[in-house]
Simulated scan of single mutants.
Amino acid sequence: MSEPFSKQQIQFSELIERHTGKDGSHTTAIPALHFARYSNMTEPNYGVYKPSLCIVAQGAKEVLLSEERYRYSPIDCLVASVNLPVTAQVTEASFEVPYLAFIFEFTPSEILSVLRESRMGIYKKDNPKRGMYVSKMDSALLDAVIRLVRLLDDPKDIPVLAPLITKEIIYRVLQGKHGATLGQIAIEGSSAYLISDVIEYMMNNYEKSFKVDKLTEIANMSVSSLHRHFKEVTAMSPIQFQKRLRLQEARHLLLSESIDATEAAFRVGYESPSQFSREYSRMFELPPKEDINRLKAKLYLDSGSN
C-alpha cells in the first residue's frame, strides 16, 4: 500500500470518527450519505441494501447474500447495484479501534447521467451481473469520497459541490473493474435494468401473492429467462427473494409493535401461521417469540451499558 494512500485512510477514519462519536447509524446533512460506528462485533443484522457504495474506514464487515459471503475491510469497497435483502455483521471492531463505515446511496438516473456525459461503452445486451460485488479501493475514489465528507464541515458548500462530487464518485466506480455491473442497471432495455424493475415491484408488493406471469410481463421476458436473469442479479429465485423480504419485515413488526406472530404472519402475506413459524425459525434460528424476547433483552442490556 502506498504511503499517500495510507495517509488518505487515516484522514478518512478521522473524519468519520469526528462526525459520529458514538455507536450507531448516523445521517448527515448530505441526504445520500450515512455513517456507521460500532465498538464491538455485532449480531447478524437482516435488512435491505439499497443501491450504494459502502466503504469501511476501520474494522471489517461481512455481508451474506443468499449463500454468498462478501467480506470487506479498509482496502475494499462494496457496491450494491439494486435493492438486495442481506444479512450483515460487523466482524472486526473494538473500543480502541471502532468499526467506521461510509455508506453512499445513488439512483439509476444519477448513474445514467454520468454514463451519458462520459460516453462509457456499457452495452445493454450484455448478460446481467450479480447485483453486489467487493472491489479493491483506489486512491482516486478515496480522494473523492474524502472531499464529499469534508463538505459536512462547511454546509453552505453542499448544494453546489455535493452533486459534482457525487458524479465523480459514480464515475470512479463505473471506471472500476466491475463498473459494468453498476452501469447496466441504468441502461433502459438491458436485462439488468428489466430485472431491477421486477425487484422494485416486489419491494413494493412483497406481502401480496403474485403469479409469475405478472413478473414476466414487467420484465418482458419468458419464464425461463426471468428466473435465470433474476438469479444472476440477486443470487436467489423470485420466491426466495419475496420470502426474505416478508420474514425480515415480520421480524421488524414483532420487535417494534405489540403484535403476536400470527398477526405479523398475516400482515406480511402468509396465509399459514405454522408455515410462517417454520420459515422464520429456519431463517433466524429461533421461533418468533423466543427470537424477539432475546432481541429485546439484548437491546435492554445494551441501553443500560451506554
Rank of each mutant, 00 (worst) to 15 (best):
Q184L: 15
V149K: 03
R18W: 09
Y123R: 13
Y201N: 03
L299G: 14
R18N: 12
L53R: 04
Y38L: 13
G21N: 02
P159T: 11
I146T: 05
V223C: 10
Q8F: 00
S109A: 13
H227D: 08
G183F: 01
Y70D: 09
M1F: 08
V149Y: 00
Q11C: 10
F241H: 03
Y193P: 08
Q58I: 01
A297T: 11
S139W: 03
Q9C: 11
D126R: 08
A93N: 09
Q11R: 12
L194H: 14
E249H: 15
Y280M: 03
P163G: 03
Y300T: 13
I55F: 12
E68A: 11
D213T: 14
L142I: 06
S25F: 15
E257G: 02
E263N: 07
K129L: 15
F102Y: 15
S303Y: 12
F284P: 05
F104W: 10
G131Y: 15
Q275C: 04
Q175H: 07
N45K: 12
I185A: 14
K296F: 05
R244H: 12
S6Q: 14
Q242D: 03
K167F: 03
L100H: 02
R18E: 12
E68I: 14
D138L: 04
K61M: 13
E3V: 14
S209Q: 13
S109H: 09
L226K: 04
L254I: 03
S274A: 01
P273C: 01
H178F: 12
P288C: 12
A36E: 14
K214F: 07
S274P: 00
Q175R: 11
E96S: 13
K61R: 11
I16W: 01
F104M: 05
H34P: 04
S135Q: 15
P51F: 00
R278N: 08
R282Y: 11
G59D: 00
K167Y: 02
A32G: 05
Y201E: 05
E188S: 11
N220K: 15
F35K: 02
F104E: 07
Y270G: 00
I259V: 09
K298C: 02
L254A: 01
P4L: 07
G121H: 10
S25H: 14
F230S: 08
L151Y: 09
L151D: 01
K243D: 05
R119C: 08
S274M: 00
S135Y: 14
I122Q: 06
P238Q: 09
I292Q: 01
D23H: 03
S191F: 06
R278S: 09
G47P: 04
